[in-house]
Amino acid sequence: MLALEVEGLVKTFLVKRKPEGFKASVRSLLRPEWTEKTAVAGIRLKAEAGETLAFLGPNGAGKSTTIKMLTGILHPSSGHARVLGMVPWKERAALAFRIGAVFGQKSQLWYHLPPADTFELLSRMYELGRADYLRRRDELVERFELGPYMQTPVRKLSLGERMRCEIAAAFLHRPELLFLDEPTIGLDVIVKRRIRELIAERNREEGTTVFLTSHDPSDIEQLCRRAVVIHHGTVIFDAPVERLKREVLTCKTVRLKLRDGARLLEKLPGGVRAAEAGPSAWRLSVDTTTASIEDVLAAFVGHCAIEDMTIEDPPMEDVIRAVYEGKAGGRPAEEGTV
């Protein structure tokens, strides 16, 4: 069964132009100028039920706008979409019972109250039976390890704790399809990892279709099986994450800081290139198609006195560039904007 079916979805906004300078502002006060901005320019997309799909793109690529159209919040300028068989902007209320959404920067929890109160409200909102609700709540509290936070006012929770509550709350009514818009933004690495695990677990156990947007490639690697990259409002890459990893996310950046006086290896291992060299600080680019990151790290750890080390994914901008440069052979965009 298809959870999502999107064809030629377009959304344009009118944006007021704000000119600089005093006189120009006075003039535009009387006669403002409008320009049309295309946020989503004809997206085509399909997703099977039970899939975990990553929706990637830099800021302003049209990710959130797409989610908002698929949840029925925004009406598209043109195009078609079916979500769980329904047209979201026409059957928003009916669809709302069957989907869930978490917006990373917009809380659904009531600020001054403990999460337990919001859970109670949501149980009524989604018209859950009492016994069923209580069982489900306890199950989620246990899985998400929310016990200590359920009775604490939300304003006193840390961002990571709050986010765990937000996501658990979104699963309360057993949505068939869950939209996650930047769910890990602003969180530290460990919390991010934990949240990804929890989402993946729900997907495995309940078959929830997950539609996730992010500009952090590591979100996708750990959570999703399929990646869709959008840029300037169109899909430029759509293939299994494996392929994205193999063909696009082919390098990792390793930053090394050596102890005073320590030297780096005489000869770098195969597949490793020094992007920035210094006596004690190095930035190395590791080609993961030819070298495994574990081996590379083992080589360094075994032979150099290391003070600090970080491993980073390439930024989204590099991913996009790689897609454009044709390294990736995923389904290209219908109408490229290159």
Partner: peptide
């Protein structure tokens, strides 16, 4: 004062 006024003009709708 001049800058304040110019800033006010930025929010043209609100200003009047």
């Amino acid at each position: 004062w001049k800058l304040n006024l110019a800033a006010a003009m930025e929010y043209r709708a609100s200003f009047f």
